[in-house]
Amino acid sequence: MQDIDNEIRNLVAEIIEKDPSEVGGEARFIEDLGVDSMMALEILAALEKKYKIAIPEDKLAEFTTLNSIIKVAKQYIAASQTNA
């Protein structure tokens, strides 16, 4: 699962235009990293595309740190693997 953590860190870093090393697990997106709502939507769409999953849009509210995103993503990745 460490691979997925890194993949998501790189994916998020690319969208928010930061070096992956700058994106700490608990760094606050809006306050610390300057993430805006369009970037959050982009992250959601990119996760869905990469892992072929569907994340409900109300989960966007939980996209506040890298760790919280990884948690949400893993939940839906696991669900999709169970269904498959």
Binding site: E42, E48, K49
Partner: peptide, 10 residues
């Protein structure tokens, strides 16, 4: 190619 769900909203 990817499906309408997967387009980049940005």
């Amino acid at each position: 190619l990817e499906g309408p769900r997967y387009v980049n909203p940005a």
